[in-house]
Simulated assay, not measured.
Amino acid sequence: MNKEILLEWDSKHSAMKRTKENYWKTYRKWRDENKGEYHDTFMGKLYDEFISLEERAIYLNYSFNKTEAVVFCSIDIFYIEERIGTYDIEFFLNGEIADDYLGFGDVLFKDRMIKVKHNIKTARSALKLGIEVSDISKITEIPLKHIEILKEKYS
């Protein structure tokens, strides 16, 4: 299958858009129904405003032990611009969802989460001390837009 046909299939079935929308449903359901696992995974809670999604891949997959080919749509999940996981949906060729996969567990995940959590804690403390937002951004390497959200909502 060439690229144009695959992208046309995506457009017809809104597969990548549905993948992003279903990520939020799946994430929130997991967070609400498995609070202990959620807090253990992220060493506390995440600010949803700091989560962003980027399209990673769309590909056709056919296994010889299955009767039907499927299309996978995959997105990367970022928390304050640190990649923390992936979300994939497996679609049948008619556009119906066959399965989905939410993953937060590569080898460096914990290190990235510790760094981000530390930087957020530092930023919140600096905001309480009245340090300028631009200076906090430089010190913590958190983008200015995220510092502004912290200042507005959580200080």
Rank of each mutant, 00 (worst) to 15 (best):
E4N: 13
E4T: 15
I5F: 07
I5C: 06
L6T: 08
L7P: 10
D10S: 04
D10W: 12
K12N: 05
H13M: 12
S14T: 14
S14M: 15
A15H: 04
M16D: 07
T19A: 03
Y23W: 08
W24L: 14
W24I: 10
R28N: 14
K29I: 09
K29N: 08
W30I: 06
W30E: 07
E33G: 03
E33K: 12
N34M: 06
N34P: 03
E37G: 00
E37C: 07
E37Y: 11
E37A: 13
Y38N: 03
Y38H: 07
D40Y: 07
F42C: 04
G44L: 04
K45I: 13
K45H: 15
D48T: 06
D48E: 15
E49N: 14
L53E: 05
I58L: 15
L60Y: 13
L60V: 04
Y62H: 13
N65T: 13
K66Q: 14
E68M: 04
V71Q: 06
C73Y: 07
I75F: 05
D76E: 06
Y79C: 02
E81D: 15
E81Q: 15
I84W: 08
G85H: 07
G85R: 02
T86C: 01
D88N: 14
D88A: 13
I89F: 02
E96C: 08
D99E: 10
D99R: 04
L102I: 06
G103H: 14
F104L: 06
G105Q: 07
V107G: 00
V107Q: 12
V107W: 13
F109E: 01
F109A: 01
K110I: 11
I114L: 12
K115G: 00
K115V: 05
V116E: 07
K117L: 08
H118A: 11
H118C: 02
N119F: 01
N119Y: 06
I120N: 03
I120S: 00
K121D: 13
T122K: 10
A123S: 11
R124F: 05
A126P: 02
A126S: 11
A126F: 13
L127A: 07
L127Y: 00
I131F: 08
E132C: 00
E132V: 07
V133N: 11
I136S: 07
S137F: 04
K138C: 06
T140Q: 10
E141H: 12
E141I: 01
I142Y: 05
I142K: 09
P143V: 04
L144M: 09
I147R: 03
I147G: 02
L150K: 03
K151Y: 11
K153S: 10
K153A: 01
S155Y: 10
